[in-house]
């Protein structure tokens, strides 16, 4: 849950990258770490891994300071996708303000996607979050792999859900990663603006919230 501490005028937000094993969650975060150039960016903490598979979680803190002095922090987490790490997934997921679901575009992985999404629903309920109100963006990663399920098929399949449209990505090549972050920031802003008076009190409107947190080297260069 978004946490505001008035003594230091600090608002801490948490976004969790969720999804099946090997779908590219860690890759997303690593790319964000290198591509993003927000006002404030901490170290990417890759906790223990074994054979490149997340055992605990990865975490990247980014942030901005508003003119009003609001110290806004966004911590981006990944969960371990492997089935056996469910309790860790649940611990990392708890108190999330938004979720990015990273799905794998390969046809062979569609069952895993579905299972992981089911697991997300289950764990959200267990940690007291509501999937219908939680800001959630769905990314289909690994578009570069030949034979990836057709985008029109995927978009049609998800069109009836509140998470449409999907974001297509190739995280390994840095494509769609920032777009995904922007989508989730957009949905997150809708949820928190009222409560924390981001626009009214801190002068952070929707577009500022998104662009200042997702500023990238490329954009700056452009």
């Amino acid at each position: 849950m978004a946490e505001y501490t008035s003594e230091d005028n600090k608002l801490a937000l948490k976004v969790v990258f969720y999804g099946p094993a090997l779908s590219g969650k860690t890759t997303n975060l690593m790319q964000l770490h290198s591509l993003l150039n927000p006002e404030r960016k901490g170290e990417l903490m890759v906790l223990e891994t074994r054979d490149d598979r997340t055992l605990f979680f990865d975490m990247l803190p980014i942030g901005l300071k508003s003119n009003s002095g609001l110290d806004l922090r966004l911590k981006l987490y990944t969960v371990p996708g492997q089935v056996q790490h469910d309790s860790t997934r649940k611990a990392v997921l708890s108190r999330a303000d938004a979720v990015v679901f990273v799905a794998d575009s390969q046809p062979s992985q569609q069952d895993n996607n579905a299972n992981a999404f089911g697991n997300l629903e289950e764990n959200l309920e267990k940690v007291g979050l509501d999937i219908d109100t939680l800001p959630l963006a769905v990314q289909f990663n690994k578009r570069d792999i030949p034979g990836a399920v057709d985008e029109t098929v995927l978009q049609a399949r998800w069109s009836v859900t509140p998470w449409s449209p999907l974001i297509m990505a190739s995280a390994l090549h840095g494509q769609g990663v920032i777009e995904t972050l922007r989508t989730v920031l957009d949905r997150l802003y809708t949820e928190i603006d009222n409560e924390f008076e981001l626009a009214n009190r801190h002068g952070i409107d929707r577009s500022q919230f998104i662009t200042r947190l997702s500023a990238s080297h490329e954009v700056n260069r452009a």
């Binding site: 903490m45 906790l47 223990e48 605990f56 975490m59 309790s87 860790t88 649940k90 611990a91 990392v92």
Partner: peptide
């Protein structure tokens, strides 16, 4: 140091939760 602490306390948290 923090990495180790984070992993340790996450482990602690999940153990307690379990």
């Amino acid at each position: 140091i923090a990495k180790y602490r984070l992993a340790a306390s996450l482990h602690h948290d999940t153990t307690e939760a379990s």
